[in-house]
Design a protein around this nucleic acid. Structure first.
Lengths: 103, 103
DNA sequence: ATCGTTTATCGTCGATATACGATATAAGTA
DNA sequence: TACTTATATCGTATATCGACGATAAACGAT
């Protein structure tokens, strides 16, 4: 949890949701969720966006801590950061989990 | 579900996350989750923002379908739209639910 | 060393978000 | 009818986003 930014208060949840607030980034996450791991080029191939734009979206996800990456030679290997996703899901359940039975 | 906008594809999830992507709006939702129902003025009193700004945030949440409201005389009564929240949580689980065991 | 490949970053620009004061609207009250 | 209260909207200023071409940086291959 120490490597997850801004875990407390609403800052973390707001920042995470902001990172999730673009369809292209959700598509990237889905791709990573399905494949486990992707090099940048694979993601670019899947997306109808320029390499620069995809790289920018990857950076947003990276900065939010939602994905991790490591260099494999000249390639960049991305995967979902499960710890952050876990905390995110917890926060969402914490906020909305009590609503099931009301209204 | 018919009154929930853009339920299919990532558009709904992205739009919902965008609405959730500001700490002030999360605080509004938390207040509503705790109290069940609030008139606008109660929310304004809780927030360190101007009435105009709070009203604008409420509009964002309203437009995203995350909250409902009805007029009570000259007052506006807001509450969480549980149906949208339910769909939202489903979509998030759909995207990330399979990650529990990996990496 | 030079060249091609892969990825990240820069610079730019139109669009959108955020905040607030001012104002409009609508409902209750004297 | 005037006055107050409650809320929404308008107008505006500033900041951030999202897209892309151009370029930089790092690596592998010849």
């Amino acid at each position: 949890m120490s490597n997850v930014p801004n875990v407390n208060s609403f800052e973390f949840l707001a920042a995470s949701c902001k990172a999730l607030s673009h369809p292209a980034r959700l598509e990237i996450l889905q791709t990573l969720a399905l494949r486990g791991t992707c090099i940048c080029g694979e993601i670019v191939d899947v997306m109808p966006l320029s390499q620069a734009t995809v790289s920018q979206h990857l950076k947003v996800l990276k900065d939010a801590g939602l994905i991790s990456w490591e260099n494999d030679g000249q390639k960049s290997c991305y995967c979902i950061n499960n710890e952050t996703i876990r905390v995110l899901r917890e926060k969402i359940e914490g906020l909305f989990g009590s609503l099931d039975n009301c209204c």
